[in-house]
C-alpha cells in the first residue's frame, strides 16, 4: 500500500492500538528477560540466602531448643516479612517504569501503537513474578533444609504454618511492588520515598497506638497469619504489649484490603503512566 492509499484507508478510521493482552504478554516477556540479566538479581539473590544460613545454624545447633514450627514462624515473620519482602519489593518495584525512563528506552515503547496502561501492567507483572520467584525459591530451599533428614519436622502444624507464611509473603510482595512501582512512576526520587514509606510509615505506624496501626499493610499481613502466638517477641511486639490495645479485623477483611491496595495502586500507576509526559533529553 502506498502513502496515498494508506491515507485514504485511514481517512475516517485511523489504525487501532495493539490488543492489551498481547501488549502485556510481549512487554512481560521482555521485562522478565531483562530483569534476569540484571546485577540487581544477584544482589537480592545473596540477600535471600540469609534465612537459609539461619536455617542451617538451626539444623546444626537449635533443633532441640526450638521446634520446627516455632522456628519457621519466627523466620517467616521477622526475616521474610519484616526485611526481605521490603528489600525485594523495593529494589524490583521502584524501577518498574523508572528503569525505562532513566535508560531513556521509554521512547521505543511510546512510539509503538500500544496502550500505556498495558505496558505498565506488563512490566509490573514481570517485576512481581521475579520478586515472587526470588522469595519463593528461598522459602522452598528453607523448607527443604528444614525437613530433609528431619522427619520430626513434618507434621500438620508445621505444614500449616509454612503454607500460611508462604501465601502471606506472596501477597505481601504483590502489594508492596504495586506501591513501589507506583512511586517509581510518580516521584523523581522514588527510592527515597520508598525507604521513607518503609521506615516512617510501615515500621513506625504499625506500632502506633489506637486504630492508626490498621492503616499499615504490615498490620493486615500479620492479621492473615494464623499462628501469630508462635512469633518471638520483637521490638514491635514489645511496644504493642506496652500499649496493650489489640484491634481485630476478620481475616477476609484484611485480605480484601490488601487486594484492594494492589488493584488501586496498579490502576493509579497505569493511569498516571498513561497521562504523564516524560521529557527525555
Amino acid at each position: 500500500m502506498n502513502t496515498r492509499e494508506l491515507q485514504q484507508a485511514y481517512a475516517d478510521k485511523p489504525p487501532v492500538t495493539l490488543e492489551p493482552s498481547l501488549t502485556i504478554g510481549l512487554v512481560y516477556n521482555a521485562a522478565v528477560k531483562e530483569l534476569v540479566r540484571r546485577k540487581r538479581l544477584v544482589f537480592l539473590g545473596m540477600a535471600v540466602v540469609f534465612p537459609l544460613v539461619l536455617t542451617i545454624i538451626w539444623r546444626v545447633y537449635g533443633t532441640k531448643q526450638i521446634s520446627p514450627t516455632e522456628f519457621f514462624a519466627n523466620i517467616g515473620g521477622l526475616v521474610y516479612l519484616k526485611a526481605l519482602v521490603y528489600l525485594v519489593s523495593l529494589f524490583f518495584g521502584v524501577p518498574t517504569i523508572h528503569d525505562e525512563v532513566e535508560g531513556r528506552t521509554i521512547t521505543y515503547l511510546f512510539t509503538r501503537p500500544l496502550s500505556r496502561g498495558a505496558v505498565y501492567a506488563g512490566r509490573l507483572l514481570a517485576v512481581q513474578s521475579i520478586s515472587a520467584l526470588v522469595l519463593t525459591a528461598s522459602l522452598a530451599v528453607c523448607f527443604l533444609l528444614m525437613v530433609v533428614g528431619n522427619s520430626q519436622a513434618i507434621n500438620l502444624d508445621f505444614v500449616e504454618v509454612y503454607t500460611n507464611y508462604f501465601l502471606v509473603i506472596l501477597l505481601a510482595v504483590f502489594c508492596y511492588t504495586a506501591i513501589f512501582a507506583f512511586m517509581g512512576t510518580v516521584f523523581k526520587r522514588p527510592l527515597i520515598w520508598g525507604i521513607l514509606y518503609i521506615f516512617a510509615w510501615e515500621s513506625t505506624v504499625s506500632v502506633a497506638p489506637m486504630r492508626l496501626q490498621m492503616w499499615t499493610l504490615e498490620w493486615h499481613l500479620r492479621n492473615l497469619i494464623v499462628s501469630r502466638q508462635d512469633v518471638q517477641a520483637s521490638l514491635t511486639d514489645f511496644v504493642r504489649g506496652l500499649l496493650s490495645v489489640e484491634y481485630s479485623l476478620p481475616l477476609w477483611g484484611s485480605l480484601f484490603i490488601l487486594l484492594a491496595v494492589v488493584t488501586l495502586f496498579t490502576f493509579l500507576g497505569g493511569l498516571i503512566f498513561g497521562r504523564k509526559e516524560y521529557v527525555i533529553n
Binding site: L6, P14, E34, R37, T111, L114, I280
Partner: peptide
C-alpha cells in the same frame, strides 16, 4: 488521540538509549 497511528511512524530519537542486555 490515535495511538494506533504509530503503526505508520518510525522514530529515531537522538539520545543514545538502547536495551543494553539484549
Amino acid at each position: 488521540h490515535h495511538r494506533g497511528l504509530y503503526r505508520l511512524i518510525g522514530f529515531l530519537a537522538e539520545p543514545d538509549a538502547l536495551y543494553e542486555s539484549m
